[in-house]
Amino acid sequence: MPLDITLYGIQMPTLLPIFVIVAILQVTVDSIIAETGLYRHVWHPGLFKVALFVCFFTLPCLYIYH
């Protein structure tokens, strides 16, 4: 995958759209977890959420920069 992409004539790093997509994914997953009450069983929900986001974001990044 290229490092830069062009959207509507604007050149930007591929990471930017990935970030937006991952953010939407994160919000969805987060609300699902909250709805099912899984956070009750997590020691530190905040840390868990951050870790989840890092995982989601790193996967495509590794693919781009490998």
Partner: peptide
Amino acid sequence: TVVSEVLFP
């Protein structure tokens, strides 16, 4: 947001 969520939230 990260700091306020992770450190002593």
